[in-house]
Amino acid sequence: MPSATASPTQTKRGSSNPFIAFCQSSIGKKIIVGVTGVYLIVFITGHLLGNLEIYLGQDHVNAYAQFLQGLGPILWLERAILIAAVVIHIVVTIQLAAENRAARPQKYAHYNYQAAKPSSRTMIYSGLLVLCFVIYHLLQFTFMTTNPEYRHLEDHLHRHDVYRMMILGFQQPIISLFYAAAIFFLAAHLSHGFSSVVQTLGINNQKVSGFVSNGGRWFSWLIFAGYVSIPVSILIGLIK
């Protein structure tokens, strides 16, 4: 007998707990990635502004670093949230990526992209590269595992001399190049991520969409310029 199309009430509907159901749904997951992404954007923007203090001189930078250290528990809370955001961001995107792969088991022999940009197609790779960099970055400047000698840098006020640390770090062209490359991937990640998050969080519409995608591109390349200006300035001797 010919089969009638099944009615959807027979297909699984997910958890009856609204929160869990939300977290299990595709849009829910996307929103989680988006919200953590926004948090990360805010962080890297703040971080950039802090770093740019290098142009104001040694005193400013070191004072700022000491101020942050002085926050104590608040700093640790901030770090915990940051770590959680990164972990959630990554875990959920990997989940999504796996689901998306399963949704297209048989690939096209010939696929011809019409709209997707290199940045949008490589989000997971740019993200993972950024992650690798972040780990190295933490090992270098935060935990100073790679460069234990940084621990002993002190300025005339006996504060930890973050300013010198940055200059020493970036005076090595290889490190700077690696840093610039990582920031490039971060910018690529954001050039899609910024407009993407506006869409994901439901703020996009026909009037603002052009503005948002251009804005996203501008924003991410500004971030790129901001971060990369530091090693460049150090290498060309603008900052000593």
């Binding site: 010919p2 089969s3 009638a4 199309t5 009615s7 959807p8 009430t9």
Partner: peptide
């Protein structure tokens, strides 16, 4: 169809 009143073929 969802309510079960119609079966669609």
């Amino acid at each position: 169809i969802n309510m079960g009143g119609v079966k669609m073929f």
